[in-house]
Simulated assay, not measured.
Amino acid sequence: MGTVLRIYENALRRYPLLTSSIQTSMLMATGDIISQTVIEETSLKKVNLKRTAQFASVGLFLAGPALTTWYRVLAKTFGDKGHTSVVLKKVALDQFVFAPAFIGVFLTALGVVQGKDPQVTVAEVKKNYLDVVISNYKLWPWVQLGNFYLVPLRYQVLVVQLVAILWNTYLSWKTQASDVIKTKDVSTNLVEQ
């Protein structure tokens, strides 16, 4: 295990953006698989791998780079020390500036990678945005208080993404709920006919 940690630590030091993006992608894929198998009760053999890959790609190309860059901006602006006033400023900016904007971009990007019509994507963002933002405020301010106060900068994306396995499960379910309901309705109608 020590060798794996050394390799990870070296990769994080040498290639922070790439390493954080890959780990974010992997953890977002995990959240999607949990959503499909646990919440949506799909058997592991019937997991929609295309959907998982789409979710993972948003992690690789959007969430990982955005979070890594954002945390660096916060550290450069306020410093990397866990003083209470610094932590509170970081959490306030993170939750009242970054999070609302990022949630909108994230939901839009997910619709784009899923190949949805732009009008459908906009309608789904409008439908889901407020619920996701409210759910965000129930979890993330508390996580970020601990993250910014206790965790060194290079590990902050990892900590967020480990907690985000549950968050990504929720996002996957929330953004796919209408598709899952439609599929179940079609299956029920076919059985009844």
Rank of each mutant, 00 (worst) to 15 (best):
L139I: 15
A101T: 15
N128V: 05
S25K: 03
E41F: 03
K89I: 06
V122E: 10
K116H: 13
N136F: 06
Y149A: 15
Y137Q: 11
G82K: 01
G115K: 07
W140Q: 07
K116G: 04
I103D: 02
Q114P: 04
K46H: 13
V122L: 15
W142C: 08
L49D: 03
V105D: 05
R51E: 07
M26H: 08
P65I: 02
Y137I: 06
M26Q: 14
K89S: 15
W70Y: 14
Y137V: 05
V91Y: 01
I34P: 03
Y129V: 02
T84C: 12
K45T: 14
V122M: 12
Q54P: 00
Y129L: 11
A109H: 05
T52C: 11
G82T: 07
D94G: 09
S20A: 13
Q144G: 06
S21H: 02
V125K: 03
W140R: 02
L110A: 04
R51S: 10
K126I: 04
V125G: 01
L139H: 09
Q114T: 09
E40T: 07
L49Y: 15
D131F: 11
S21F: 06
V47R: 03
L67R: 01
P118H: 09
H83V: 06
V143R: 00
V120F: 13
L27K: 01
A63D: 07
Y129S: 01
F96V: 11
Q54V: 07
H83Y: 13
L27E: 00
Y137H: 13
I34G: 02
Y149R: 15
W142E: 08
A99H: 00
Q144K: 12
A56K: 01
S35H: 09
A63L: 10
V132I: 13
V86E: 12
D94A: 04
G31I: 01
N147H: 12
V113I: 10
M28A: 10
K127M: 07
K90P: 00
T52P: 01
I33G: 00
G115P: 03
F96S: 14
M28E: 02
K45W: 11
T24A: 13
L27Q: 03
P141S: 09
G79H: 09
G64N: 02
F106E: 00
V105C: 10
L93T: 07
V120H: 12
G31A: 05
F102N: 06
Q54T: 08
R51I: 01
S85Y: 14
